Amino acid sequence: MTSVLFPLDPGRFARQEPDGLPLVAVPHAGGTAHAYRGWTEPARARGLRVFGVRTAMPTDPDSPERTVRARARRLAESLAELGEPCVLVGHSLGGLIAAEAVLHLERHLADAVPALLVVCATNPPHLPRPVPVAGGTEEEAVDFLRTVGGTPPQVLADPGMRELAVAMLRNDLASLRDYAWDGRRLTTPTAVYAGRTDPVAPPDSLAEWTGAAEQVTTRVFDSGHFFPHDSTAHLLDAIRLDLAGSRAAPAPGRPRPAHRP
């Protein structure tokens, strides 16, 4: 299998041997690894090196199966090929894919389980949620993109770019229509982060993550759905703290609130 992971180091480091703990970042619905380009330098300053996850375009005739579990399985196999401990971070839909990937590793490839799973702006997977813009018009999809943020205005203003953005969003969200969590709880230390004003994954759902994971730490950031990119430095600092504290796990079934950046 060809790995879906690739390093996102800045160009000036291209001739240097990368170092630091791998941080693998899974993008949100409709997003690509490009969203994490701005993470590379602050991550490097904190002893982390960022890996992106390849996303197939909806126009690609060779696009692989795009269900949540199929994408999670490919991610899990690529993490196993990485051959070293890592932090796995997923944003929104990417958080669900990351959680499913860890479930797969816990069952089939335990040696490759991440040191820490971080899910950002992701609703608890065992609770049913309506799929945004399911079957809606392009205008409704564009309104959704404007509401949650994260899409540059120039993309939505350009007809061709807007059409691609909507197609990528719908293609990703379609993977949720028949999805259901299988009832198992993650045993890997799990940090769950939320944006205080996020309309998609509100912070009041954080405590419910104990239904899907045994060791849960929660944090709330002063931003919306795209807080991972609005508050990258604070988020990376939180990851370092939660990574250091992951061995001191809370009692199963009870989330451990952390300070709120």
Rank of each mutant, 00 (worst) to 15 (best):
P22K: 05
A25N: 10
V26I: 06
V26W: 00
G30F: 05
G30N: 04
T32I: 06
A33R: 07
R37S: 15
W39M: 07
A43E: 01
R44T: 02
R44Q: 04
A45W: 00
A45P: 01
G47S: 03
R49S: 12
V53S: 05
V53C: 11
V53R: 08
V53G: 05
V53I: 08
R54E: 07
T55H: 04
P58F: 10
T59D: 14
D60W: 09
P61R: 13
P61V: 12
D62E: 10
S63F: 00
S63N: 00
S63H: 03
P64T: 09
E65G: 15
R66Y: 09
T67V: 06
T67E: 04
T67L: 08
T67W: 07
V68F: 01
R69G: 13
R69P: 10
A70G: 04
A70K: 04
R71L: 10
R71N: 12
R71S: 06
R71H: 05
A72G: 07
A72Q: 03
R73E: 01
R73N: 00
R74W: 01
L75A: 02
L75Y: 01
L75K: 06
A76N: 01
A76E: 00
S78P: 12
S78N: 11
S78W: 10
S78L: 10
L79H: 00
L79A: 04
A80E: 05
E81F: 03
E81T: 15
G83M: 09
E84Y: 07
E84I: 09
C86F: 13
L88M: 06
V89Y: 14
V89H: 14
V89D: 08
G90R: 14
S92N: 10
I97G: 10
